[in-house]
Simulated scan of single mutants.
Amino acid sequence: MKTYINNENFLAGITVKENTNEENNTALHICQSIDVVQKNRQELAAQIGYTLDDFVCTQQTHSANFYKVTAADKGKGAYSLDTAIEDTDALYTYEKGIVLTSFTADCVPVILTNAKTGLIGVVHSGWQGSVKEITLKLLQHVILEGNNPRDLHITIGMALSQDKFEVDEDVYLKFKALGYADQFMYYNESTNKYHIDNQLTVKKQCELAGIPTEQITVDSTCTFNAINGFSYRQDKQCGRHLTFVVRK
């Protein structure tokens, strides 16, 4: 596990690939053994001082949909996909003791915290989520709920690097249509491919929401290149990282 935040208010981090059964995969939707994945999740829960009954998971669909979690949702998706919150790619809550989760393998995981209001949130932003501006939309929503953007802190977790994120023109045009992503893209004439920095695109979305740049942290680890990274580009049958945040 890689810890991103550990202070008096919040604990947040991301699981990493290891030399264990299923390589520490934590995703039920792509696994060889549900029992092994549940064991990996239980070990994570014990490591951070919670149980799987405190976890909340979603059925991610590369949407721009977000969901406000309450204590009544605890345990959803923790043991079975059937109970996961449907068609949702971002979660947030103000309540203590709820472990919000997101699963990625190249996509951008985003963590939100606000010590003044107790807000926590996680976002799964693959390229589809980024062009749908899921992070920006969630931020705009919580700002309307009373979160001052100057009090929000953002952690953008490990993801596919720009060098490895090569796409065809159709995806490039979707990012270009955003109107602010041109500086995060380049064209490689030798391969006829475009390269996009999805992390910096998401960072820009946070800045557009009013988050001060100095309150946005980016983990530049490339999931394709890193020995402890799960990369869908490298292996379509790979496991998933679990990004989590909990208010203590």
Rank of each mutant, 00 (worst) to 15 (best):
V171D: 06
G210Y: 14
E18S: 05
Y232G: 10
N65K: 05
T20L: 13
V37N: 13
L200E: 14
I98H: 00
K68R: 11
I5E: 00
T223S: 15
V131G: 07
Y50A: 10
V56I: 12
L44S: 12
T51H: 10
Y187F: 15
F230Y: 14
R240T: 03
F103M: 13
K2V: 02
V123G: 00
E166R: 07
N19F: 10
P149A: 14
I134E: 00
E86M: 15
H29M: 06
F230K: 12
A181G: 07
L52I: 11
Q42D: 15
I196W: 03
N148W: 04
I134P: 01
Y67E: 01
E169F: 06
I156V: 07
T26A: 11
T113R: 10
G146H: 10
Y194N: 06
H153Q: 14
I120N: 02
K248L: 12
G239Q: 02
E207Q: 15
D235L: 12
L139V: 02
D163M: 11
L138C: 08
K164Y: 08
A115D: 07
W127P: 01
I14V: 13
Y180M: 00
Y4T: 03
L242P: 05
H153L: 08
S80Q: 13
I154T: 02
Y92M: 01
N65S: 06
G179C: 05
N21Y: 09
D168C: 01
Y94R: 06
T51A: 07
T135N: 11
F10Q: 03
C31H: 04
K74P: 04
T88C: 15
G49A: 10
Y94S: 02
G126D: 14
K17P: 01
N9E: 06
A115G: 00
